[in-house]
Design a binder for these strands. Structure first.
Lengths: 235, 235
DNA sequence: TCTTAGAACGAACAGCGTTCGTCGCAAACA
DNA sequence: TGTTTGCGACGAACGCTGTTCGTTCTAAGA
């Protein structure tokens, strides 16, 4: 039932989706997921929206601001249960694990969080939740705020570290993360074995132990150290 | 007493300092200290050595490799005492504080460490020292290696966060770090106060506590959490 | 209907890391 | 001693980056 547009009718210029901060953020996030953080440039986002890079600056003042917006958008995917101070350790642990899992999906976004005190709506939501949990558990507000700060740093740092590995893997053309990490550990182990045993007795003696454990095991180990430390302060 | 060079004498081409990996690393480090990490580019290093950027690639395969070399050079400045397992907490704490202080001086170098498992000679020296200290204190080699890994991540992450703040300060043209951080805390505090108190009771209620404490206090707090966690594993 | 605010955008700027191909020196070889 | 060869130095360029300037065009308000 469609008919050709009459030629005298001036061609509609805005057939493509209207530019807005939301579609820009969403497009940026999509590029991040599909092609990695090193592919996320203003030009690339503009290209995906079929326009030039200059057009983005009407809705986003910076690449930095764009990344902050994307980061907060990602934080929104973290699910937070009703805080129950009676089992704060379990809830804090669950939050940390989920936050890492989600952040790990989105490559370089974690870098933004390491640098900024996040102030987006979802960052506030998470901060309020953690403060409620820890203060409810009996921690002083000052200690709780420090704990929130340090835990956030730990999570984002680990996510950032992971994203760097992922970027290297992508650059090397490998697609299987397991194989990549295995090869990585093997290379380190082989190198350690070549060291002079008299100057590095521990590094050469405990090669197996030092290269054991995947990223998750290491993350959980550090997380447990932090939570145990918090526990000690509550007693 | 200097006389003009005889014209028939072929002009000495290599009057300027011979290029080598060492002078490149040293030059890069100097730029890092004086002008910050964002000013450290291959072109800039080449310019300082009065040559073109292409000349550097005969001695350094990458910018990444250059940063790794600089990072290890910086690690060399960390002083390590004879390990005494009887007071491992004190020694670990002292090491962490000094490492942070030194890393904080050199801006973005910390970023390299977050991404890599450092394998330079000085990184090995530090790793061996920490392993000896913790295993000597009774920790299992596997736990010790995890602890070393996590502590290194924590230190470099904090240094990286600090360097980002420093870069922002530099970009804003501020020269006094104290004034900058104070202004930063005030801005955050003011923002928190404007939030709706019903949805963010803790953030709005504990504004003072949340913005209190400088970077060092926060670093030491997290460090204590980690060390306390390690202690608990030894008992 | 006319005015005007602001989004869209082409073009350009200054910078980046890296590579290619050439040049010239110095040591190794005949 | 004469010739060859390997390699550091390096000018020029490629393709990319974030960002800005100045212009065009659209759409809403007066």
């Amino acid at each position: 039932m469609t008919v050709p547009t009459p030629p005298w009718r001036t061609a509609r210029k805005r057939a493509k989706t209207q530019l807005s901060q939301d579609v820009i953020v969403e497009t940026g996030l999509r590029i991040l997921v599909t092609d990695g953080s090193e592919a996320l440039s203003m030009r690339r986002v503009a290209q995906a929206l079929d326009t030039g890079p200059a057009s983005l600056y009407a809705h986003v003042s910076n690449k930095e601001e764009l990344l902050e917006l994307i980061f907060d958008r990602v934080l929104g995917e973290i699910h937070l249960p009703e805080p129950d101070p009676a089992q704060w350790q379990r809830q804090l642990r669950g939050y940390a694990m989920e936050a890492l899992r989600i952040l790990a999906q989105y490559g370089d976004v974690a870098r933004i969080a390491v640098a900024n005190v996040p102030t987006g709506p979802n960052a506030l939501r998470v901060g309020e939740w953690m403060m409620g949990l820890l203060v409810g558990a009996g921690m002083s507000p000052r200690e709780a705020s420090f704990a929130v700060d340090r835990l956030a740093l730990y999570i984002t740092a680990d996510a950032f570290e992971g994203s760097q590995h992922f970027a290297r893997m992508r650059a090397a053309g490998v697609t299987d993360p397991g194989a990549y990490m295995e090869e990585f550990a093997t290379r380190i182990a082989d190198y350690y074995r070549t060291l002079p045993a008299d100057r590095f007795p521990h590094l050469t003696g405990y090669v197996e132990e030092m290269t054991a454990g995947d990223g998750d095991a290491r993350f959980e180990f550090g997380l447990d150290l932090l939570i145990t430390g918090m526990e000690a302060r509550l007693r």
